[in-house]
Amino acid sequence: MTSLAERLVPDELWELFRRVVPETVVVRPQGGGRRRAGDRECMAAIVFVATSGCTWRQVPPLFGPAWPTVYRRFARWSKERVWARLHRVILDELGAQGGLDWSRFAIDSVSVRALKGLLTGPNPTDRGKNGSKIHLVTDRSGLPVAVAISAANTHDSLALKPLVASIPPIRSRRGLRRRRPDKLHGDKGYDYPHLRRWLRSRGITPRIARRGIESSGRLGRHRWVIERTMSWLAGCRRLHRRYERKPEHFLAIATSLINYRRLTK
């Protein structure tokens, strides 16, 4: 493999990926044919597309497989939810090493331009142009634990319940798996009594700024980590301007890469 492919998919990341990718057995009764392109080379090309923002046709030939092969492999893995399973595996490894801090989580969202596809709507912060909104829950250090995508005109408060409920049960250094933080920090967009009651019913202490009472700047002491994570997501340039109908697959790739970098530090 080339040095670029090895840098995009290091050995440690490849070993984690092998745990979730389904094994493919190629049978050619007639014999002959070309050798099947390697999964690692295809994954490196997919990571290159996600981080560079290029189109599938612009995949460099140095990876080995042609761009139609890379796209078909991406489509098949996306259908089989390989990227979501990879994110779960990396979270489990982080949890087993004590890399997740459950004492305080944060929730926020960021709007991105979306030219077409599902989960798009007029963005009120971008002159009504089509866009999507990425909703994110991170731990105390800013590691993404749960992510979701909605139309840009979706209110932040509507995403709190499904996003918190989607936090997977993650391994701990000792004891049972865990999926609920001690506290959840949010801005004034989540300041609703029913959301506070719902969080308390699940054993989560809400730390949400109250409209007309508290300053959002005070929450910035704890919420700056999620702002930093959103800048990390900017490293996945395919999320900047959406072309896919189902962008959640690239979002899972981006969050997996963020958590993997923390895992190998």
Rank of each mutant, 00 (worst) to 15 (best):
L184H: 05
F17V: 06
A45M: 06
M230Y: 13
A5R: 09
T69Q: 13
V225T: 10
R245F: 14
C54V: 10
R211Q: 10
K246N: 14
I134G: 06
R174F: 09
R210D: 00
L91M: 05
S231T: 02
A151Q: 04
A106C: 13
N153Q: 01
I208D: 08
I167A: 14
W198D: 04
K188L: 14
G212V: 11
S103Y: 03
G142Y: 01
L163R: 05
F48E: 08
A151M: 00
R200K: 15
P168R: 01
G31F: 06
T24G: 03
P124A: 05
D108S: 01
P29T: 00
A96M: 14
R88N: 03
F17G: 02
H240F: 08
C54P: 07
K161Q: 14
R127Y: 01
T24C: 01
P247E: 07
L251S: 09
R173S: 11
R36T: 15
T125I: 14
I258G: 00
E6R: 15
A44N: 02
L219R: 06
T120Y: 07
A146C: 11
L233R: 12
T205M: 09
T205E: 10
I208A: 10
F105S: 14
L91K: 00
R127V: 00
D156S: 06
A159R: 04
L4T: 12
D39I: 12
E15C: 03
R241M: 14
S111M: 15
G212I: 05
R197V: 13
G117K: 08
F17K: 09
R242D: 13
E6D: 11
L158V: 14
I90F: 00
R196G: 09
S132A: 13
V164T: 05
A84I: 10
L143R: 10
R34F: 01
L62N: 02
S256E: 04
Q30L: 13
R104V: 12
K116F: 12
L115P: 02
Q97Y: 07
Y190Q: 08
D11L: 15
V112D: 04
H155T: 15
E12V: 10
R177Y: 07
L100Q: 11
N153M: 07
A209Y: 03
A252N: 11
L13H: 09
K133M: 04
S52W: 06
W67K: 04
G220N: 05
D182Q: 13
Y192Q: 05
A50M: 11
V225S: 06
L158T: 13
T154Y: 04
L100K: 04
I149A: 03
I208W: 12
V47Q: 01
I149T: 06
P162T: 00
R140K: 14
S201F: 00
R210C: 01
P60F: 01
L184Y: 05
F105W: 12
W232D: 12
R81G: 04
G235S: 05
G212Q: 11
E80Q: 15
R211E: 02
W102A: 12
G33M: 07
K133W: 10
P206T: 08
W77C: 06
R228M: 02
R174W: 13
